[in-house]
Write a protein that binds this DNA or RNA. Structure first.
Length: 769
DNA sequence: CGTCATACTTAGTAACCATGAG
DNA sequence: CTCATGGTTACTAAGTATGACG
């Protein structure tokens, strides 16, 4: 508790941070080690004495991941250059400060009377009264009471929506601007009108599932019909004039071996093919595909010459690029046909788009980071591998001619239409619906509702883990510290992974001692915990966080007598943690904290950063900054765009020339002033004024450019998309847009609007997360 | 409990495409 | 018209979570 209050005190909060983004001097971002690498970053060479499940024993858990050796240098540089002294701490401190503030502000008053909350719950409640009443969280019992309170009229909402839509339509119809064009212009216009019509049509067709009753527990659908997955085309053997050479001699490979050779050849310009592990895995699997004779002959990958195959592939790519418009159009139409046929299913009498209806084609496995299995052959999936799921009375999909399905089942407690087992990790792959479908949308909605429930009971939960830091039981203390990290830093849960099967990455519960460095004092802060590990997708997480003394001591204690490779939390795993969390609030798991903290941060930031008096560009900037604050919190990174340096340089040269202009203008101004002083001619005075204006204008332009540069620089490695799509309650954004009178299209593109249709439709102006 | 199987969300990259400056 | 640039979409890997079972 003490800790919480301390943290809440006087934090400038993320708002400041988001603003700071513009100021290079206050660069506070976590050092980003760059993607997919762990660099020196304390990877254990160690023989783990951690709970090694595999028989592989304590032997070489040589944990040295890293990929992108090629980029590694650059990245290393980046991470080293990153401003170490910047108060990393600010981020975390601020966040928590914010959280606390929000709680103080909202939970207290919100509990009984928050209309919006009631509203939302009510809708849901109405839909599935039964389950809700029995299932919903007793530990947050207040919300239950709330739910039953008053019920607002819904009619006006519907009306409003209708209005809005009409409005939209009208404005769209107006759009086709003044017709000064001739044929082509008119045609274009007609096309545009068509598009609008289509859009309206689509809107009318939209299944407003969120207005319907929910199904009882576990039932995902009543009827489901589809055409089965779409299989990639069969392998087409190489033409005779393209040869593979071994040891300088042309060798005609069997189709199976040839296909795999081509997989490799196609990747020759990719860094993967230079990696030892990749090459070895590939070669091993390739040899399995060879005939006995081939295997006898081909024993050394270095003797293989894929040059002609590679060139052929390049030419094909080139040819595709150079296709004429008509050809391209034809291709597009052919594709469209496939989508029409296989890309949709009928679920409970509604046509729904399937997300991934294509069976993954064979190829070489491209694991991320330092993946032990990279380069292995991902084999071709046959209908005999595929399980079909659909309703009994539907038209069962036909397997491709001459084939059979592995199985056809009718399980309406799951959402997948087809599944198969993949041969690299032995895991399942599923064909499921698109994000704009009912099944996905409902789940998404639910996710945010759970996060909102957490909001109403996060206080006691935080208080409890603060208490638990003092527990006599080691397990409980570990749980408390882990929870503290998950809450404060938005770390992922960290399930354990099978060793040797995947790259060595960790989350909270699977942190090892080498991922943490303790600094009693660092850069003016006390009790600093330094994190350095590879998270999901081998993205580096690097952060220095001042923590309370108690947390610090605990971490120290957990690290006592442990070595590299040992688990920091040896008495804790994700299922224990989640079991505990669920007991505090139904539906609560570790990842809910990420959702909750992300969304609440966005809401807070928007409140702080945006003014309705701003112009649209400014508003959008605020939005993006709020979004960015979340992306930073969640450590969402991307590889810098390939052209990044170039475009940055371009911008810089623009800035430079502007600077020159400015100094020139300044000099002129000075000169003019001098002259004006000597001679008080009114003309000269006016000239001074004019020059002044010019200088001012240049200064403004320069500033803007510099802001743009900084902005871009800071977005270099930050990906905003992931948080927007997965962590931010869309209703926050929708309400913000309406309140700020910013068109929603500025924030969400078409796909996103489709995905969030439910939120766009139901969100009230006064929505509060 | 720990392990395994299963299902579903989250994630970054690469290919593709539209657009606007030169 | 061409090319650079940036947004969008497709793809699939890599996570989280849960429930059955011994």
């Amino acid at each position: 508790m003490t800790d919480l209050s301390v943290r809440s005190a006087g934090c400038p909060s993320l708002a400041a941070a988001a603003v700071t983004v513009l100021n290079p001097n206050l660069f506070w971002f976590r050092e980003m080690g760059g993607e997919r690498k762990g660099a020196e970053a304390g990877r254990a060479k160690g023989k783990g004495q951690r709970k090694d499940r595999s028989s592989s024993g304590p032997v070489g858990r040589s944990r040295k991941p890293q990929r992108n050796e090629g980029e590694a240098t650059e990245k290393k540089e980046r991470s080293e250059k990153a401003p170490k002294k910047a108060p990393q701490s600010e981020l975390s401190d601020n966040e928590t400060g914010d959280f606390v503030r929000v709680l103080g502000q909202v939970t207290v008053k919100a509990e009984p009377e928050d209309d919006d909350f009631v509203m939302d719950k009510r809708k849901k409640g109405r839909k599935r009264k039964r389950e809700e009443e029995s299932a919903e969280g007793p530990s947050c019992s207040t919300s239950k009471l709330k739910k039953q309170k008053k019920v607002k009229e819904e009619d006006d909402e519907v009306e409003r929506n209708a209005d809005q839509k009409a409005e939209k339509r009208r404005s769209k119809e107006k759009k086709p601007e003044s017709s000064k064009g001739r044929k082509t212009k008119e045609e274009a216009e007609a096309a545009r009108m068509m598009k609008i019509k289509l859009k309206e049509e689509e809107e009318k067709q939209r299944w407003r599932w969120w207005e319907e009753e929910k199904y009882e527990d576990g039932i995902k659908w009543k009827t489901l019909e589809h055409k089965g997955p779409y299989f990639p085309p069969d392998y087409l053997p190489l033409p005779d004039n393209v040869n593979f050479y071994y040891n300088g001699k042309a060798v005609k490979l069997s189709p199976a071996a040839e296909e795999v050779a081509l997989f490799f050849a196609q990747m020759l310009d990719h860094e993967y093919t230079t990696k030892e592990v990749f090459r070895n895995n590939f070669f091993k699997d390739w040899r399995k595909e060879m005939t006995v004779e081939e295997r006898m002959l081909i024993t050394d990958l270095d003797q293989c010459d894929f040059g002609e195959l590679f060139r052929m592939h390049k030419e094909k790519v080139e040819a595709r690029r150079n296709m004429s418009k008509e050809e391209k159009q034809l291709m597009k139409e052919a594709n469209q046909k496939i989508v029409e046929e296989y890309g949709y299913c009928t679920l409970d009498h509604h046509r729904e788009r399937i997300g991934n209806f294509k069976i993954e084609p064979p190829g070489l496995f491209r694991g991320r980071g330092d993946h032990p299995k990279q380069g292995m052959l991902k084999r071709r999936i046959q209908p005999e591998d595929v399980i079909i799921n659909c309703s009994k009375d539907s038209r069962i999909p036909e397997p491709p001619a001459g084939h059979k399905w592995k199985e056809v089942r009718h399980d309406n407690t799951v959402t997948w239409l087809a599944s198969w087992t993949e041969n690299i990790q032995g895991s399942f792959k599923y064909v499921m619906l698109n994000a704009n479908s009912k099944l996905k949308g409902e789940k998404d909605w639910e996710k945010y509702e759970v996060a909102r429930r957490l909001k109403s009971c996060v206080d006691p939960i935080r208080a409890q883990y603060q208490q638990d830091l003092k527990s006599k039981q080691m397990g409980i203390r570990q749980r408390a510290v882990a929870l503290y990290f998950i809450d404060k830093l938005a770390l992922r849960a960290g399930n354990e992974k099978e060793e040797g099967e995947t790259a060595d990455t960790v989350g909270c519960c699977s942190l090892r001692v080498e991922h943490i460095t303790l600094h009693p004092h660092l850069d003016g802060d006390d009790n600093v915990v330094e994190f350095d590990f590879l998270g999901k997708d081998c993205i580096r997480y690097y952060n220095k966080v001042p923590v309370s003394k108690r947390v610090f001591k605990n971490v120290k204690l957990f690290m006592d007598n442990k070595h590299e490779g040992d688990d920091l939390f040896d008495r804790l795993n994700t299922s224990m943690l989640n079991k505990y969390l669920t007991s505090l609030m139904p539906g609560l798991t570790a990842k809910v904290f990420r959702t909750y903290n992300a969304s609440i941060t966005l809401q807070d930031q928007l409140k702080k950063l945006s003014n309705s008096s701003d112009n649209q560009a400014e508003k959008l900037l605020s939005y993006n900054r709020a979004n960015r604050a979340v992306a930073v919190l969640c450590n969402h990174q991307r590889a810098p765009p390939k052209t990044f340096d170039q475009s940055m340089a371009n911008l810089q040269s623009k800035i430079d020339s502007r600077k020159e202009q400015l100094s020139l203008a300044k000099a002129e101004l000075k000169q003019a002033k001098k002259e004006a002083k000597a001679n008080s001619d009114s003309k000269l005075q006016a000239l001074v004024e004019k020059k002044k204006k010019v200088v001012q204008r240049y200064e403004e332009q320069l500033l803007r450019l510099e802001i743009q540069a900084t902005d871009r620089e800071e977005n270099k490695q930050i990906a905003l998309g992931t948080s927007k799509l997965n962590y931010l309650d869309p209703r926050i954004s929708v309400a913000w847009c309406r309140n700020m009178e910013v068109p929603l299209e500025k924030i969400y593109n078409k796909t996103q609007r489709d995905k969030f249709a439910w939120a766009i439709d139901m969100t009230e102006l006064d929505f509060e997360f």
